[in-house]
Structure formats: structure tokens, C-alpha cells
Design a protein around this nucleic acid. Structure first.
Lengths: 137, 137
DNA sequence: ACTTGACCTGTGTCTTAGACACAGGTCTAA
DNA sequence: TTAGACCTGTGTCTAAGACACAGGTCAAGT
């Protein structure tokens, strides 16, 4: 199986497959013409990787998980602990985005009723520069 | 004013100031000893940059905004149009994070009641590999 | 056998917004 | 003047692939 075949069969891109191969998550054999050749085992491994990515694990996480399982150990405890960390991070980012979204949308609506101003020596754009101050009034 | 002074006075890091200088957003003079020297004008410019970053503009956006204003034009129309784009992007990412957060937290709670399993030839971790399927039942 | 063109490949570079490392310069107190 | 503390610019690194590109492969047509 060539790179593009594998990629298409699981709904991803050849670049992604190559990336995982570069990192050692997939270990294709070299066929005679120098192309990377993927076996059925690689197919299910890629399927696993994509599921894990979809759940928010990083590729480094996934590498660790695979390493653990290749040592014959159960990866489940590691998986539980990693998702706890990732979820906390996601929660933080989520809150940050929530706040940012609010700020942006309030800026957008407020700026629509404000006039244009030409720049001065110490002001690039009064919309931005006065945003926080106005908020306080 | 040296890099670290400027940075501290506005609550940011020297690396950030250097980064903006590298991109040409700030244009420090060279003092005799080779150090970058920032004037009062740079202070208010950095203040502007930080406000804009805080509102979700990218540094490239900010560069365009500054360019516009240095041509003597009002940057306000550009600013309005850019924030509209950025807000849309933020909204998309926000929805994606919302969905991800849900998936992760449901995985976390469900996995706590599931047993560990050793890996097999075609399974790295049953928690991950069975997650979507279980969901459908 | 040969050639054309379409498709495929691996490798290397690019992206964001800074953080970090590091070799060396500066400056103040002793 | 020397030690030590602090500061500097430059170069490299990050995540997760996307993209560019020179060259290889392969089936159809001649």
C-alpha cells in the first residue's frame, strides 16, 4: 500500500501519513522503488492514531501510548492520566476563547457606530487604542 | 530605553519586544554599544500593539494596520474588516473546542469505570479504539 | 521500444508568536 | 581592575502538518 492509498482509505492526507512515518508512529517497509509500503497492521495503527488525535491527544502523547503498549503493558492508565491533563488545558483555552470572543464581538458592534479618524503622531487607530478605556466608563 | 526596561514598563517580555522589532513593528535606534534604544514613540507604539494583540489581531494584521496609518490613511476601515474575519475564525475555533471539550470529558468519565486491557496485535488501547463505537450503542 | 502525460514520491522548507539557549558585552561595587 | 550580576543580539526550537519541488513510476498510445 502506498502513502496516498492509505491516506485516502482512512480519510486523511498523504502529508499526514508521511508526518507520522517521520516521527516513527508508523513504520512502513521500503519497497524496491524506494516508496514506503504500508501493511494491514499500519492501517489499524493509523486508525488508532486518528482516533486519538480526534480525542485531543497530541502526537507526542500518542507516541508514548504506543511505546507503552509495545512494551506489552496496558496503556490504559497512561491514557486516563493524559486525557485528564489535556482536558484541563482544553478547558483553559476554552475559557480564554470565550472571553476573547466576547471582547471581539463587543468591539465589532461598537466600532460600527464610530467614525474614522486619521492617524496622529502617537495614535495609530483610535478604535483600538480607546477600546479598553471606553469600556470602563 | 533598553529592551528589558521597555518590556517591563508595559508588562511584557524582552523577547516579545525583540520579536516585534525583528518584524519591523518597532524601529529602535542603535545606541553606541550596539544595544537597541527605544524612544517614547516606541512606547506608545508597543502599547498599541499589545492592545491589538489582546483584541485578537495577529501580528501580521497589526503590521498592515500600522502600514496603513503610516501612509497617512485612516486604518479604521481595515481594522473593522479585519476584526470581522478574526471573529469568524474565533467563532469556528470556539465551536470546535466546545465539541472537543464535550468529547474529552465524556471519555474521561466513561473510562473511569472501564477495566485495563493489555494490548494485542491490532489494538493499542481499547479505551480509545472503542470510544466512538460505544457512543453509537 | 519509445514517449507522453498524469500521477506519485521523499525531502526540505514554511507557518505562529514568541520562549529559550548561549556566547559575549556592560556596568556597578569592591 | 576585577568580580559578579545583569543585560544583549542572534540563532534555534516549538505543533501538526501544508506546500513546493525535482525527480521517479506507470499505463496508454504510437
Amino acid at each position: 500500500m502506498k502513502v496516498a492509498e492509505l491516506a485516502k482509505s482512512l480519510g486523511t492526507t498523504a502529508d499526514t501519513v508521511r508526518y507520522y512515518s517521520r516521527l516513527g508512529l508508523l513504520k512502513p517497509a521500503k519497497s524496491v522503488n524506494g516508496y514506503k509500503s504500508y501493511s494491514n497492521k499500519e492501517v489499524s495503527r493509523l486508525k488508532f492514531i486518528l482516533s486519538a488525535r480526534n480525542l485531543g491527544f497530541s502526537v507526542v502523547d500518542i507516541k508514548e501510548i504506543i511505546n507503552e503498549s509495545e512494551d506489552g503493558k496496558s496503556a490504559c492508565p497512561l491514557v486516563r492520566s493524559l486525557i485528564k491533563e489535556r482536558l484541563e488545558e482544553t478547558e483553559k483555552q476554552f475559557q480564554a476563547m470565550l472571553a476573547l470572543r466576547g471582547k471581539m464581538s463587543s468591539a465589532l458592534s461598537r466600532w460600527e457606530e464610530m467614525e474614522d479618524k486619521a492617524p496622529t503622531a502617537n495614535m495609530v487607530c483610535h478604535l483600538i487604542e480607546n477600546f479598553e478605556q471606553i469600556k470602563k466608563t
